[in-house]
Computed example of a mutant assay.
Amino acid sequence: MRQNPSFAMTDPAELRRVIAASPWAMIVSDADEGLVASHYVVLLDDDADDLTVVGHVGRPDDLIHGLGERELLIVFQGPHGYVSPGWYGDVAAVPTWNYVAVHLSGVPEILSDDENLRVLERMVDVFESGMAHPRGMWELPNDDAFVRRLAAGTVGFRLRPTKVVAKRKLSQNKPDDAVQTVIAELTAAGNNALAEEMRRARDARRSASA
């Protein structure tokens, strides 16, 4: 991802927020047969306070990616959406796409079977917490043998990134009144998540210049 200093995200707390809110990630590696991409849930490691993440892939994706042997790129895509040039008023403008993205790169370590089980259990708990009647991984009718058999079909990993590139392209190069108009238009269109990201970026810019 080409970086632009005006759009760079560098605050670790903000990066963690985006990763936590966008766990459906794309995992990319340069495999023997060429570039390969897979899509999996990836979470922040709850035993770390940095950008370390944990996840899993299903077999044989571990072999395809050379998991633990090759560098991986993990892409977290935050809120995004189309911005019409008409929203900037009667000025020369072109269409664009506003977005937030975080890229983490590095060679992951393979988790032990017990660590992988803990990560899988946490993933289930994270997403079941929003259900009306949460059902944990170990709850009946699942039994120990069933859970462990399914877990054996996955390979867990932990990635401590050696390279981080994060970007929020949110009309920061436009005057405040134009930014406010875009926020209003996105809100009216129902893209509240992107509108909120633009508010955060606007407020951060104001604080930095104060």
Rank of each mutant, 00 (worst) to 15 (best):
residue 6 S to R: 15
residue 13 A to W: 12
residue 19 I to M: 04
residue 20 A to V: 07
residue 23 P to F: 00
residue 23 P to A: 03
residue 26 M to E: 10
residue 28 V to L: 12
residue 33 E to M: 07
residue 34 G to T: 08
residue 36 V to P: 01
residue 37 A to L: 14
residue 37 A to K: 03
residue 39 H to Q: 07
residue 41 V to A: 09
residue 44 L to G: 05
residue 45 D to S: 03
residue 47 D to V: 02
residue 50 D to W: 09
residue 50 D to G: 09
residue 51 L to N: 05
residue 53 V to F: 00
residue 56 H to R: 03
residue 58 G to F: 06
residue 58 G to K: 10
residue 59 R to K: 14
residue 60 P to K: 10
residue 60 P to E: 08
residue 61 D to C: 05
residue 62 D to M: 12
residue 65 H to A: 04
residue 67 L to C: 08
residue 67 L to E: 01
residue 68 G to C: 10
residue 69 E to P: 00
residue 70 R to Y: 13
residue 71 E to Y: 04
residue 72 L to D: 13
residue 73 L to S: 12
residue 76 F to V: 10
residue 77 Q to D: 12
residue 78 G to V: 02
residue 79 P to Q: 00
residue 79 P to D: 01
residue 81 G to A: 13
residue 82 Y to W: 15
residue 83 V to P: 02
residue 85 P to D: 10
residue 91 V to I: 15
residue 91 V to S: 08
residue 94 V to S: 09
residue 98 N to Q: 14
residue 99 Y to S: 08
residue 102 V to Q: 04
residue 102 V to I: 15
residue 104 L to S: 07
residue 106 G to Y: 07
residue 108 P to R: 02
residue 111 L to Y: 07
residue 111 L to D: 00
residue 112 S to A: 08
residue 114 D to F: 07
residue 116 N to K: 15
residue 121 E to W: 06
residue 123 M to C: 08
residue 123 M to H: 04
residue 124 V to K: 06
residue 126 V to F: 05
residue 131 M to R: 10
residue 132 A to P: 00
residue 136 G to I: 05
residue 137 M to K: 11
residue 139 E to K: 14
residue 139 E to T: 10
residue 141 P to L: 12
residue 143 D to E: 11
residue 144 D to G: 11
residue 144 D to Y: 15
residue 150 L to Y: 01
residue 153 G to S: 05
residue 153 G to L: 02
residue 154 T to N: 05
residue 157 F to E: 00
residue 157 F to S: 01
residue 161 P to W: 00
residue 162 T to L: 02
residue 163 K to G: 05
residue 167 K to D: 01
residue 167 K to M: 10
residue 167 K to Q: 11
residue 168 R to A: 13
residue 170 L to T: 09
residue 171 S to M: 06
residue 174 K to Q: 13
residue 175 P to I: 07
residue 176 D to M: 13
residue 176 D to Q: 11
residue 178 A to N: 11
residue 179 V to Y: 02
residue 180 Q to R: 14
residue 180 Q to W: 07
residue 183 I to T: 04
residue 185 E to L: 11
residue 185 E to T: 14
residue 187 T to P: 05
residue 188 A to D: 13
residue 189 A to L: 13
residue 192 N to T: 15
residue 194 L to D: 09
residue 195 A to P: 02
residue 196 E to V: 11
residue 198 M to Y: 09
residue 199 R to S: 09
residue 203 D to P: 02
residue 206 R to F: 06
